[in-house]
Simulated scan of single mutants.
Amino acid sequence: MKILVTGATGIVGRHVVDQLVQAGVSVRALTRNPAAAQLPPQVEVVEGDLTAPAGMAAALEGVEQMYLFSVADSAREVVTLARQAGVRRIVVLSAASVTAGLHTNPVEQAVEESGMEWTHVRPCGFMTNMLQIWAPSIRAERVVRYPFADEPMNLIHEADIAAVAVAALLEDGHHGRAYTLTGPGLVTVREQVAAIAEALGEPVRYEEVSRERARELMKAQGGFAAESADLMLGFVEYGGEAAGGADGYAEQDWSALMRVWPDVEQVTGRAPRGYAEWARDHLADFR
């Protein structure tokens, strides 16, 4: 058995690779820059880009299962090449917002129409998203500046997303399923900051700021923070359209994302990791 992991150096992809290696599976990892991949030595690392599927033929050769990072524009071409290469099972990294009906995912649609076995993994917000936004100010000042102090969020540990994906790749019985993945409970920004402080063993100050001020700070930070600011703070909806309500979310129904789903435990046999565990796992990033 050989499994191709696309997005192999990403937040979830690295965990998928590591967990497959631990399971004793032959793994081929697709990345744009193999020299910088820093994956386990037993992994076959190949160069490739999902946005340029014509160059993926070699990466797909001999592959039976595939973990597919969602790239909408080239999805149908990638899926067609996979089917032609003999891939029989695909697990798609999608999003819980699809379950909520906030948008559709053309990658899901392409895979469903392919005739191959498929499973969709739909996580809610990543706990790690805030790492990239908050870590610089925590390291420099031991402070977090962000709005929504006491509004509950549904967040998930990236290792749990990978665990469900790996189960769907290796086990039978997951074909035709879409798993919505959440953590064990809702958590507020204030509680997240407190969990990080507890992991550090040092005070971390929380300063609630307006959405507008948070947007300024994130845009100035650059990188992921700047790119995701408008969506995370509610200035745009999924799909990039301007948000309709005064708070940025009024025109969308988020109720499906505000409940705890049982899918992680049903698939893996254990409860999902909580935010405090995530904070401990990422302690070095905050130091």
Results as ranks from 00 to 15, higher is better:
1 M>E: 15
1 M>F: 14
1 M>N: 15
1 M>C: 09
1 M>K: 13
8 A>G: 07
10 G>L: 03
10 G>D: 01
15 H>S: 15
15 H>D: 13
15 H>F: 11
16 V>Y: 06
17 V>W: 08
18 D>V: 04
22 Q>W: 04
23 A>G: 01
27 V>Y: 05
27 V>M: 08
28 R>S: 12
28 R>I: 12
31 T>S: 08
32 R>E: 11
32 R>I: 09
33 N>R: 06
38 Q>V: 14
41 P>D: 15
41 P>M: 13
43 V>T: 03
45 V>P: 07
46 V>N: 13
47 E>D: 05
47 E>F: 05
47 E>G: 13
47 E>N: 06
48 G>E: 06
49 D>R: 10
49 D>I: 12
52 A>D: 14
54 A>H: 00
55 G>Y: 10
56 M>S: 13
58 A>D: 15
61 E>L: 11
61 E>H: 14
62 G>P: 04
65 Q>H: 12
65 Q>S: 15
76 R>A: 15
76 R>G: 10
81 L>A: 15
82 A>H: 01
84 Q>N: 10
84 Q>Y: 03
86 G>I: 00
90 I>T: 12
90 I>P: 08
91 V>F: 11
95 A>T: 11
96 A>E: 07
103 H>F: 15
105 N>E: 12
107 V>H: 07
107 V>M: 06
112 E>M: 14
114 S>G: 12
120 H>F: 13
121 V>G: 02
122 R>S: 08
123 P>Q: 03
126 F>D: 06
128 T>A: 14
128 T>G: 14
129 N>R: 07
131 L>D: 09
132 Q>T: 14
132 Q>R: 14
135 A>Q: 14
135 A>I: 10
138 I>P: 09
138 I>H: 07
138 I>T: 11
140 A>K: 09
141 E>Y: 08
143 V>R: 15
144 V>Q: 06
144 V>Y: 08
146 Y>H: 09
149 A>I: 05
150 D>C: 04
151 E>V: 04
151 E>F: 02
151 E>Y: 02
157 H>W: 05
160 D>L: 09
161 I>K: 02
164 V>P: 01
164 V>L: 02
165 A>S: 14
167 A>R: 05
170 L>F: 06
175 H>A: 15
176 G>M: 05
183 G>K: 01
184 P>G: 04
185 G>T: 01
188 T>D: 09
188 T>L: 09
188 T>A: 10
189 V>R: 13
192 Q>H: 05
194 A>G: 01
196 I>G: 03
196 I>T: 02
197 A>Y: 00
198 E>R: 01
199 A>H: 00
200 L>H: 01
201 G>Y: 07
201 G>N: 12
204 V>D: 11
207 E>A: 08
210 S>E: 09
210 S>K: 07
219 K>M: 14
221 Q>W: 08
222 G>E: 13
227 E>V: 05
229 A>L: 04
229 A>R: 00
230 D>M: 05
232 M>Q: 04
233 L>V: 02
236 V>P: 00
239 G>D: 12
240 G>N: 02
243 A>W: 06
243 A>P: 07
244 G>P: 05
246 A>N: 04
247 D>N: 03
252 Q>M: 11
253 D>E: 00
257 L>D: 04
260 V>S: 03
260 V>W: 03
264 V>N: 07
268 T>L: 11
269 G>T: 05
269 G>L: 04
270 R>C: 02
270 R>Q: 04
272 P>T: 09
272 P>W: 06
274 G>V: 00
275 Y>F: 08
281 D>V: 03
282 H>S: 03
